[in-house]
């Protein structure tokens, strides 16, 4: 599978819940992917992910370009030496277009963010993300799965077994949770409650994130929550359309980032900035301090690799910035 004449590109997507890595070849085909939990420690999870990727592909594989995306894209970019650091909307759109060039709507629900991307003729024409509220995102489902002691992977299956969804308020996670507890104390079976929750989150997504958007087929549904068949069915019910869940729905961000790296490599004359597969053995230290220059009390973060300072950010006045 590994060809020494072929060029390979790495994409890393570090989100609030999961860290995903993908390696693609020059024709944008996925070679290998890794999906692990971030567990609140992005540095460790990137190192762990790189190590797993190296174990799967072998350290002789040369990376000709690397990209990072996700909410920790800036940090990840510094760690791995990314050539291109891009937001996750662009990354997701590119990955979806690669798997289905006709796609017109991409729905992505991740840990903290949920987004909708409207594509026409292969170009992103509109997008929206959840505003001030995290209702309907992966973190909330995760929390509820924990509370009900159901593995998150089983959540969707269980929802499908029910044909009597209870009504749950999806507007706000606090309301949703109290509704769920109320229904559970009344004696409703868990599967009905879970189905009710999926429907509530689906409604909330469509009326909040999807508000005023022209949702046309083909519709792709991706991100960690797409693993939940209950959610897929909810969307099919409300949108009355077929929902496509791509094969690699959970690493689409990373694939998109790798595609960006591949496109960037064509334009770039320099060699890739990509560190090397030894990232997992390097010693990364992140430390922080509070600047007392003014009453903003900015929290400054410093990142050191083997004791050399490689990046520093966090100050509003930018006096500490050490990047770019």
């Amino acid at each position: 599978m590994i060809d020494s004449r072929e060029k390979y590109f790495l994409g890393v997507d570090v989100g609030s819940i999961s860290t995903n890595l993908a390696v693609i070849d020059n024709s944008k085909e996925l070679i290998e992917s890794v999906y692990i939990r971030t567990d609140g420690k992005p540095v460790n999870s990137v190192q762990k992910g790189i190590k797993m990727m190296r174990d799967q592909l072998g350290e002789d594989l040369v990376i000709s370009g690397a990209g990072s995306t996700g909410s920790a894209r800036k940090l990840t970019g510094v760690l791995i030496g990314a050539d291109i650091v891009k937001n996750e909307i662009t990354a997701h759109a590119l990955a979806s277009l690669h798997y289905n060039p006709d796609v017109q709507t991409v729905m992505e629900i991740g840990g903290q963010d949920s987004k909708i991307i409207i594509i026409r003729n292969g170009i992103v024409v509109d997008f929206a993300m959840n505003t001030v509220c995290a209702a309907g995102t992966g973190s909330f489902l995760d929390m509820q799965a924990n509370r009900l002691e159901i593995p998150i992977e089983k959540f969707g299956e269980l929802a499908l077994q029910s044909d009597n969804a209870v009504s749950i308020a999806g507007r706000c996670t606090v309301f949703a949770e109290s509704d769920m507890i109320h229904k559970q104390q009344l004696g409703h079976p868990t599967k009905d409650i879970i189905k009710g929750l999926c429907e509530a989150l689906g409604r909330n997504y469509l009326s909040n994130v999807g508000k005023g958007k022209d949702i046309r087929p083909p519709i792709m549904f991706q991100g960690g929550v797409a693993a939940n068949i209950g959610m897929k069915e909810t969307f099919e019910k409300y949108l009355e359309q077929e929902i496509i869940v791509p094969e690699h729905y959970d690493v689409m961000g990373a694939i998109g980032s790798a595609i960006l790296a591949q496109e960037d490599a064509i334009k770039r004359s320099k060699k890739s900035n990509f560190q090397s597969w030894d990232i997992s053995e390097m010693d990364f230290q992140t430390s922080g301090f509070e600047c007392d220059g003014c009453s903003n009390i900015c929290e400054i973060v410093e990142i050191r690799r083997n004791d050399t300072l490689i990046a520093r950010w966090g100050s509003r006045c930018r006096k500490w910035d050490l990047i770019d």
Partner: peptide
């Protein structure tokens, strides 16, 4: 939408994505 939050990542992501969209639209 703006409130007291200081988490800049969210705003930065939206801005960058918006600018990408504008750029692709212009190139198109």
């Amino acid at each position: 939408v703006l409130d007291e939050h200081t988490g800049e990542a969210g705003i930065q992501t939206r801005l960058e994505a918006f600018v990408d969209l504008l750029e692709r639209k212009r190139n198109d």
